[in-house]
């Protein structure tokens, strides 16, 4: 007689522990039967598929694709980011009267403010739409979710920089000339670090009330090394400052957060 049939023959009585005891007896019998079956087939029940690097890459790419596709269809986050960043640049342009020496600071302040807005929208929106739990319960390590979200945020910030760079160049009358690849590389390095710390703090803010306020409060102080390094390096590229230790500051910031943020992300999203 099958296990299910044997179990079905038993009654259910809430007044005594007999139902539970019945289950235990069946369980022991089943364990004995299963031990033989597993030995014969060589396949253990509950075997977990291996999750190698390629699997992780595919999962991260899927998350990034999903986030960017949603953003492409809605255009909510990127529109808000571009609007805020451009408005900041224009207002500072008026305030400083288009003086070229402040262009690097305006560029990076506008970029960081845009990033703050993007972080809030991209991660928090997932929680507000009620999709976060389903995302977290997919099989595999949650580190892959971090990399996907990081890639999506990096993409959005790169799009923002693509709009912001020419705008600041026109507003302040500056040009990188033949050194534009250096400028682009510097901006990309800054975006990589900003996206890493932003993805982490976006997840951290999921646990608290007033998260829209908390993200800037957490992110802006931590983004200070990126902000300063970005400004100084851009000044050096435009010929108004020295390189100094800033490439190392930017590189160390990026490496530190790319190493630490995925691990911390797994911890902070553990229970949302």
């Amino acid at each position: 007689m099958s296990l299910r049939a044997r179990v079905a023959q038993r009654g259910m009585d809430p007044r005594t522990p007999s139902a539970l005891e019945t289950g235990r007896a069946d369980l022991q019998a089943h364990r004995a039967a299963e031990a033989g079956a597993a030995g014969a087939s060589g396949v253990a029940a509950g075997a977990v598929p291996a999750g190698g690097g390629l699997t992780g890459l595919r999962r991260a790419a899927a998350v990034a694709w999903k986030d960017l596709l949603l953003e492409w269809r809605r255009r909510e986050t990127v529109a808000a980011m571009v609007f805020l960043a451009c408005l900041t640049a224009v207002l500072l342009g008026f305030a400083f009267g288009g003086r070229g020496e402040v262009a690097p600071a305006v560029l990076w302040v506008a970029l960081v403010l845009g990033a703050v807005l993007g972080v809030s929208r991209l991660t928090v929106a997932e929680a507000e739409q009620g999709t976060l739990e389903a995302l977290l319960l997919y099989p595999g390590a949650r580190e892959h979710l971090f990399w996907g979200k990081w890639a999506a945020l990096t993409g959005l910030l790169t799009a923002l920089a693509a709009v912001l760079l020419p705008l600041v160049a026109v507003l302040f009358g500056v040009a990188a000339g033949p050194r534009w690849p250096l400028l682009a590389g510097t901006v990309l390095l800054g975006i990589v670090g900003l996206a890493a710390v932003g993805t982490l703090f976006g997840a951290l803010a999921l646990h608290v009330r007033g998260r829209e306020l908390l993200v800037p409060l957490l992110l802006l102080p931590l983004a200070l090394p990126v902000l300063l390094a970005g400004i100084r390096l851009t000044e050096a590229i435009l010929g108004t400052g020295r390189v100094g230790p800033w490439p190392a500051v930017l590189a160390v910031f990026d490496i530190l957060f790319l190493l630490v943020a995925p691990i911390l992300f797994e911890l902070v999203v553990e229970e949302v």
Binding site: P49, E133, L137
Partner: peptide, 28 residues
């Protein structure tokens, strides 16, 4: 484990086909 909860957990701007493609990529 898989859960079908009281909330559907679907992205408003994706299509059913895209949802299943996403789920396939996430689950391998």
């Amino acid at each position: 484990v898989a859960v079908a909860g009281a909330a559907d957990g679907a992205y408003e701007a994706l299509t059913p086909r895209e949802h299943l493609t996403f789920a396939a990529a996430m689950s391998g």
